[in-house]
Write a protein that binds this DNA or RNA. Structure first.
Lengths: 336, 336
DNA sequence: CTGTTAGCGCGTTCAA
DNA sequence: TTGAACGCGCTAACAG
């Protein structure tokens, strides 16, 4: 393993001072053209790479942006990752993605790593059960620009992009009611999380508004998975009053429900109406096609990136609360 | 924006020398217990975070492992990301994921970033059309441990984990032949890539072996997508000799095919047999269920990580070629 | 146009 | 047990 080549190595080899080499490498105009070309040629030849640790040690920020997401096997997140990767690349940044696997501990660890390495900025959607916001606050202290999207810390003063979960869930519930469904259940995640809490409220709101008798919220603490979806439907159908429609917070859950329904000859949409958050690559091919709530990933990515850029250019200050809300849409299909 | 706190700040505040603080923070036994506790308390209180740039500048490696993948919205890759994240975390590493979006230019950029930041190691599946391996060679030069998986640079001397693409594609072709299909087409990617080249060869091998008349390989240069899948099926069906079975290298393509087939009343599996690489979250729910080739993501992640660990501990040297092959399996369903 | 010098934050000598 | 001094690679301010 060879030692990596440094500006001093180049300087020694070319009989100039290493500061001259430094200037040459950064195309400083006040360096002799001939010297510069020599340096550049030598550098290219020997695969010189700036040691960013040295550069950053001097205080300059780097070109890496960190993106923290709960998981990337949800289309919602993987889409946003793709979009952000492209946007950032065009502006000369590189996106580095960290997956928390919904684990608070790992999230903390990741935040530490990010602080230690002086990332230029961070975009976060927090883990499902993260309540304590201390680690995020620490980023603030270190002056690292931070933008939340979707899963946010409500009580933190920092820019964020959220989805109109309250309105859209209320709207979805209303839609089901108007379609004639009477026993509408709502499957969602822990309400310590803003997303699930807002959806919960939206559901409750519509149920109240139309004075429905039936009200059934299932809070799923486990990770959302197809298996859990199956279990939940089974459980629901064993209740004295069965649901005739379901709003699900996760496609994984929804698929489990559909499979279990099929197995038990529960017809969709006749016996059971279904609306789900999020879509699938294979949405079009599933029969019946599921009515889903489409979350505008591109817009979310764009807004988050804009906010982060504004923080990095100090147009928005750290500790300043800017909130952008994007609007999800119900895409009506066959399942209700 | 406050300046970040350093060991010198702590030293000044506690009236000791910064080297003492340094020792205390790393639990050096030869530092007074009282002093140590004071330092640790102060550090915790003021959110002291080691500046890794300074540490790394001195030569020590960091705890971040980079993972480079073409994209993460394929289950294959996102599964591997998840697995690796967990494994690495348990060993005290943090995984940082970089997505190339199948772009060679971006891949180069990412590799530079990784070199500049002294990652502890790198696990790579290369972009579809990356041919030049220069940027990867540079990593070698800098002594950064590098492991390839799935999409590799054949002619590079470095550890790698590959899938038995030749055998499994040959096997899949054979399966279709034995099921009575005669006109089997093969949809795949550019053959400059080892994965698609090997599948191609496997297909050809079986076709030769059984002396089939029909032989149709479609090389898809575009990104694999549902839309492209539709187009390809349309094109195939306009040929004088239509295929009666298809092996597809991508689920995205496969879904396009199924949709287009449904639209044109082409029955699966009666009129068209189908085998696809890769599975879907919703595999179970699609009718007919697709026969697919299951790639052992967990095993791939595990082997890749093991190899990387061995490189990091110098058990395997840089420039040493170690090849592990994992075995994909055909999961027989209804589509053929 | 180029060299000198200092210092970013840290860990590691060596000396006290 | 602690302090002083040095250097990792780089850039910036200053001097020539």
């Amino acid at each position: 393993m060879k030692k990596r080549i440094t500006i001093k190595d180049i300087a020694r080899e070319l009989n100039v001072h290493h500061s001259t080499v430094s200037r040459a490498l950064r195309n400083d105009p006040c360096v002799n053209e001939k010297t510069r070309d020599q340096v550049l040629a030598y550098a290219r030849e020997h695969d010189y790479q700036t040691n960013m640790n040295a550069v950053q040690l001097r205080g300059t920020r780097n070109n890496a942006i960190a993106l923290i997401v709960p998981n990337i096997n949800h289309t919602f997140f993987s889409d946003i990752v793709s979009q952000l990767t492209n946007m950032a690349y065009q502006k000369g940044y590189v996106i580095s993605v960290f997956q928390t696997n919904e684990k608070y501990q790992l999230e903390k660890e990741i935040v530490n790593t990010i602080i230690q390495h002086n990332f230029a900025g961070v975009i976060v959607s927090k883990a499902k059960d993260t309540i304590d916001k201390q680690h995020f606050m620490t980023m603030n202290k270190f002056g690292i620009p931070l933008v939340f999207f979707d899963r946010i810390c409500d009580d933190m003063q920092t820019p964020r992009v959220i989805i109109n979960n309250f309105e859209i869930t209320s709207e979805a519930t209303e839609l089901l009611i108007k379609k004639g469904y009477r026993n509408i259940a709502h499957l969602t995640g822990t309400t310590t999380n803003n997303v699930f809490r807002d959806r919960q409220r939206g559901y409750e709101f519509a149920i109240e508004k139309y004075k429905m008798d039936y009200r059934q919220s299932v809070v799923i603490e486990d990770d959302f998975s197809v298996e859990v979806g199956k279990t939940v439907l089974t459980a629901l159908m064993e209740l004295p009053q069965k649901p005739d429609a379901i709003i699900s917070s996760s496609v994984h859950i929804t698929i489990g429900i559909m499979l279990e329904a099929r197995k038990n000859n529960i017809r969709i949409p006749e016996d059971l109406g279904l609306i789900t958050f999020g879509s699938l690559l294979s949405s079009e091919i599933i029969v019946p096609q599921i009515t889903y709530i489409d979350q505008p990933e591109t817009e979310i990515a764009q807004l988050s990136f804009d906010l982060l850029e504004k923080m990095m250019s100090h147009e928005i200050q750290i500790g300043e609360l800017v909130e952008k809300t994007v609007h999800a849409k119900i895409i009506l299909k066959e399942s209700c």
